[in-house]
Design a protein around this nucleic acid. Structure first.
Length: 215
DNA sequence: ATTCCGATTGCCT
DNA sequence: GGCAATCGGAATG
Protein backbone atom coordinates (compact mmCIF):
# COMPACT_ATOMS: atom_id res chain seq x y z
CA UNK A 1 0.00 0.00 0.00
CA UNK A 2 1.15 3.49 -0.73
CA UNK A 3 2.62 5.55 2.01
CA UNK A 4 0.96 8.85 2.72
CA UNK A 5 4.40 10.36 3.11
CA UNK A 6 4.68 10.92 -0.61
CA UNK A 7 4.34 14.62 -1.29
CA UNK A 8 1.59 15.56 -3.67
CA UNK A 9 2.41 17.92 -6.47
CA UNK A 10 0.80 21.22 -5.66
CA UNK A 11 -0.66 23.94 -7.79
CA UNK A 12 2.21 26.24 -6.90
CA UNK A 13 5.08 24.19 -8.27
CA UNK A 14 8.24 25.77 -9.56
CA UNK A 15 8.40 25.36 -13.33
CA UNK A 16 5.73 27.67 -14.65
CA UNK A 17 7.26 30.53 -12.76
CA UNK A 18 7.80 33.94 -14.27
CA UNK A 19 11.27 33.97 -15.88
CA UNK A 20 13.91 36.58 -15.33
CA UNK A 21 13.04 38.30 -18.61
CA UNK A 22 9.60 39.03 -17.27
CA UNK A 23 11.09 41.35 -14.71
CA UNK A 24 12.98 43.37 -17.29
CA UNK A 25 9.93 45.49 -18.04
CA UNK A 26 9.73 49.12 -17.06
CA UNK A 27 8.92 49.58 -13.37
CA UNK A 28 5.36 50.70 -14.02
CA UNK A 29 4.73 47.88 -16.51
CA UNK A 30 6.08 45.33 -14.07
CA UNK A 31 4.14 46.83 -11.18
CA UNK A 32 0.97 46.56 -13.21
CA UNK A 33 1.59 43.07 -14.53
CA UNK A 34 2.52 41.69 -11.12
CA UNK A 35 -0.94 42.45 -9.78
CA UNK A 36 -2.70 39.10 -9.84
CA UNK A 37 0.52 37.10 -9.94
CA UNK A 38 1.20 34.56 -7.19
CA UNK A 39 4.20 34.95 -4.91
CA UNK A 40 5.52 31.60 -3.71
CA UNK A 41 8.08 31.06 -0.97
CA UNK A 42 9.41 27.69 0.12
CA UNK A 43 11.19 27.27 3.41
CA UNK A 44 12.13 23.63 3.59
CA UNK A 45 8.82 21.81 3.85
CA UNK A 46 6.93 24.99 4.48
CA UNK A 47 5.02 26.59 1.65
CA UNK A 48 3.84 30.16 1.59
CA UNK A 49 1.85 31.59 -1.28
CA UNK A 50 -0.35 34.55 -1.97
CA UNK A 51 -1.84 36.61 -4.72
CA UNK A 52 -0.25 40.00 -5.22
CA UNK A 53 -3.00 42.62 -5.13
CA UNK A 54 -1.09 45.88 -4.75
CA UNK A 55 2.27 47.21 -5.95
CA UNK A 56 4.11 50.46 -6.47
CA UNK A 57 6.75 51.42 -9.02
CA UNK A 58 9.92 53.29 -8.03
CA UNK A 59 11.75 54.81 -10.96
CA UNK A 60 15.41 55.00 -11.87
CA UNK A 61 17.40 58.22 -11.71
CA UNK A 62 17.39 58.27 -15.50
CA UNK A 63 13.65 58.66 -15.74
CA UNK A 64 12.53 62.10 -16.86
CA UNK A 65 9.78 62.12 -14.26
CA UNK A 66 12.32 62.75 -11.52
CA UNK A 67 11.08 60.28 -8.91
CA UNK A 68 12.65 61.84 -5.83
CA UNK A 69 10.98 59.28 -3.59
CA UNK A 70 12.90 56.44 -5.21
CA UNK A 71 15.92 55.28 -3.23
CA UNK A 72 17.80 55.20 -6.53
CA UNK A 73 17.13 58.86 -7.22
CA UNK A 74 20.59 60.00 -6.18
CA UNK A 75 22.43 57.05 -7.65
CA UNK A 76 23.86 53.90 -6.13
CA UNK A 77 24.59 53.81 -2.41
CA UNK A 78 25.31 51.11 0.14
CA UNK A 79 21.65 50.78 1.01
CA UNK A 80 20.13 50.71 -2.45
CA UNK A 81 22.80 48.66 -4.21
CA UNK A 82 20.44 45.75 -4.78
CA UNK A 83 18.20 48.02 -6.85
CA UNK A 84 20.98 48.12 -9.43
CA UNK A 85 21.22 44.35 -9.67
CA UNK A 86 19.72 42.28 -12.44
CA UNK A 87 15.97 42.15 -12.88
CA UNK A 88 14.25 39.82 -10.46
CA UNK A 89 16.64 40.69 -7.65
CA UNK A 90 15.09 41.24 -4.24
CA UNK A 91 15.66 44.63 -2.67
CA UNK A 92 14.79 44.46 1.03
CA UNK A 93 15.37 47.40 3.32
CA UNK A 94 14.40 48.52 6.79
CA UNK A 95 12.10 51.46 7.28
CA UNK A 96 11.52 53.46 10.47
CA UNK A 97 14.09 51.23 12.14
CA UNK A 98 11.35 48.67 12.59
CA UNK A 99 9.71 47.34 9.47
CA UNK A 100 10.95 45.82 6.25
CA UNK A 101 9.88 46.53 2.70
CA UNK A 102 10.36 43.96 -0.07
CA UNK A 103 10.89 45.05 -3.67
CA UNK A 104 11.59 43.30 -6.94
CA UNK A 105 14.19 44.90 -9.18
CA UNK A 106 13.10 45.80 -12.71
CA UNK A 107 14.89 46.58 -15.96
CA UNK A 108 18.41 45.41 -16.89
CA UNK A 109 21.29 45.46 -14.46
CA UNK A 110 22.67 48.86 -13.55
CA UNK A 111 19.51 50.88 -14.11
CA UNK A 112 18.15 51.11 -10.56
CA UNK A 113 14.39 50.70 -10.41
CA UNK A 114 12.07 48.43 -8.47
CA UNK A 115 8.53 47.41 -7.63
CA UNK A 116 7.39 47.50 -4.01
CA UNK A 117 5.11 44.68 -2.92
CA UNK A 118 2.40 46.42 -0.94
CA UNK A 119 -0.32 43.85 -0.35
CA UNK A 120 -0.99 40.18 -0.90
CA UNK A 121 -4.06 37.99 -0.56
CA UNK A 122 -2.85 35.03 1.50
CA UNK A 123 -3.46 31.64 -0.10
CA UNK A 124 -1.17 29.10 1.54
CA UNK A 125 0.59 29.11 4.91
CA UNK A 126 -1.85 31.31 6.80
CA UNK A 127 -0.93 29.67 10.07
CA UNK A 128 2.73 30.53 9.67
CA UNK A 129 1.85 34.03 8.58
CA UNK A 130 -0.40 34.47 11.62
CA UNK A 131 2.38 33.35 13.94
CA UNK A 132 4.85 35.75 12.40
CA UNK A 133 2.36 38.57 12.53
CA UNK A 134 1.85 37.93 16.20
CA UNK A 135 -1.80 37.08 15.78
CA UNK A 136 -3.29 34.32 17.89
CA UNK A 137 -5.25 31.63 16.10
CA UNK A 138 -8.48 33.05 17.46
CA UNK A 139 -7.57 36.53 16.39
CA UNK A 140 -6.58 35.43 12.92
CA UNK A 141 -9.71 33.42 12.24
CA UNK A 142 -11.54 35.18 9.48
CA UNK A 143 -8.89 37.87 9.57
CA UNK A 144 -6.50 36.81 6.86
CA UNK A 145 -7.22 40.37 5.80
CA UNK A 146 -4.63 41.56 8.33
CA UNK A 147 -1.81 39.24 7.40
CA UNK A 148 -0.31 40.85 4.30
CA UNK A 149 -2.14 44.14 3.88
CA UNK A 150 0.72 46.61 3.82
CA UNK A 151 4.40 46.32 2.86
CA UNK A 152 5.67 45.80 6.40
CA UNK A 153 3.04 43.21 7.23
CA UNK A 154 3.61 41.37 3.98
CA UNK A 155 7.38 41.19 4.54
CA UNK A 156 6.84 39.96 8.09
CA UNK A 157 4.25 37.35 7.13
CA UNK A 158 6.39 35.96 4.31
CA UNK A 159 9.46 35.96 6.51
CA UNK A 160 11.57 38.31 4.45
CA UNK A 161 14.64 39.62 6.27
CA UNK A 162 17.66 41.71 5.40
CA UNK A 163 19.32 38.40 4.56
CA UNK A 164 17.05 38.27 1.54
CA UNK A 165 18.44 41.49 0.12
CA UNK A 166 20.22 40.70 -3.17
CA UNK A 167 18.51 37.33 -3.40
CA UNK A 168 16.40 36.41 -6.42
CA UNK A 169 12.72 35.99 -7.01
CA UNK A 170 13.53 33.55 -9.80
CA UNK A 171 14.69 30.52 -7.86
CA UNK A 172 13.11 27.42 -6.39
CA UNK A 173 12.75 28.85 -2.89
CA UNK A 174 11.16 32.09 -4.04
CA UNK A 175 9.37 32.79 -7.28
CA UNK A 176 6.24 34.13 -8.94
CA UNK A 177 3.55 32.42 -10.96
CA UNK A 178 1.45 34.10 -13.65
CA UNK A 179 -1.97 35.46 -12.79
CA UNK A 180 -4.67 32.84 -13.16
CA UNK A 181 -7.43 35.23 -14.13
CA UNK A 182 -7.83 38.69 -15.61
CA UNK A 183 -7.52 41.55 -13.15
CA UNK A 184 -9.34 44.85 -13.08
CA UNK A 185 -6.47 47.23 -12.36
CA UNK A 186 -6.86 50.42 -10.38
CA UNK A 187 -4.21 53.14 -10.44
CA UNK A 188 -3.46 55.87 -7.95
CA UNK A 189 -0.72 57.94 -6.42
CA UNK A 190 1.67 56.07 -4.16
CA UNK A 191 1.04 55.86 -0.46
CA UNK A 192 3.09 57.28 2.37
CA UNK A 193 5.56 59.35 0.38
CA UNK A 194 6.13 63.09 0.39
CA UNK A 195 8.26 63.53 -2.73
CA UNK A 196 6.88 62.99 -6.23
CA UNK A 197 3.65 62.23 -4.45
CA UNK A 198 1.52 62.95 -7.49
CA UNK A 199 2.89 60.31 -9.85
CA UNK A 200 0.28 57.60 -10.57
CA UNK A 201 2.52 54.63 -9.84
CA UNK A 202 0.42 52.55 -7.50
CA UNK A 203 -1.37 49.58 -9.05
CA UNK A 204 -3.95 47.42 -7.36
CA UNK A 205 -6.70 44.89 -7.93
CA UNK A 206 -9.77 47.11 -7.92
CA UNK A 207 -11.96 44.19 -6.86
CA UNK A 208 -9.83 42.87 -4.03
CA UNK A 209 -10.55 43.52 -0.40
CA UNK A 210 -6.95 42.72 0.48
CA UNK A 211 -5.46 46.00 -0.77
CA UNK A 212 -3.95 48.28 1.85
CA UNK A 213 -6.03 51.31 0.94
CA UNK A 214 -8.46 52.62 -1.62
CA UNK A 215 -8.70 55.78 -3.62
C1' DA B 1 30.47 64.60 14.06
C1' DT B 2 25.77 65.70 14.15
C1' DT B 3 21.14 66.09 12.57
C1' DC B 4 17.29 64.72 9.98
C1' DC B 5 13.82 61.75 8.71
C1' DG B 6 11.44 57.87 6.37
C1' DA B 7 8.08 53.42 0.32
C1' DT B 8 4.99 51.82 8.36
C1' DT B 9 2.43 50.01 11.92
C1' DG B 10 -0.24 49.80 16.01
C1' DC B 11 -1.91 51.86 19.97
C1' DC B 12 -4.13 55.93 22.03
C1' DT B 13 -7.67 59.54 22.53
C1' DG C 1 -7.40 61.13 13.46
C1' DG C 2 -2.99 61.77 16.12
C1' DC C 3 1.36 60.12 17.40
C1' DA C 4 5.23 57.27 19.34
C1' DA C 5 8.45 53.57 18.30
C1' DT C 6 13.33 53.03 16.71
C1' DC C 7 17.53 53.02 13.76
C1' DG C 8 20.75 53.62 10.21
C1' DG C 9 21.42 55.83 5.71
C1' DA C 10 22.08 60.13 3.78
C1' DA C 11 22.54 65.02 4.03
C1' DT C 12 24.63 68.82 6.39
C1' DG C 13 28.29 71.39 9.10
Amino acid sequence: MESTITAKPDAFSFGKHLPEEFFQQSPEDLARSLVGAILVKREGERLLAGRIVETEAYLSSQDARQDASSHAFRGKTARNEAMFGESGTLYVYQIYGIHLCANIVTEPQGIGSAVLLRAIEPLVGLEIMSERRGLSVEKSVGKSINLCRGPGKLAQAFGFTLQDNFRSVVEESCYCLPATKPVKIGISARIGITKAADLPLRFFDAESRFVSAHR
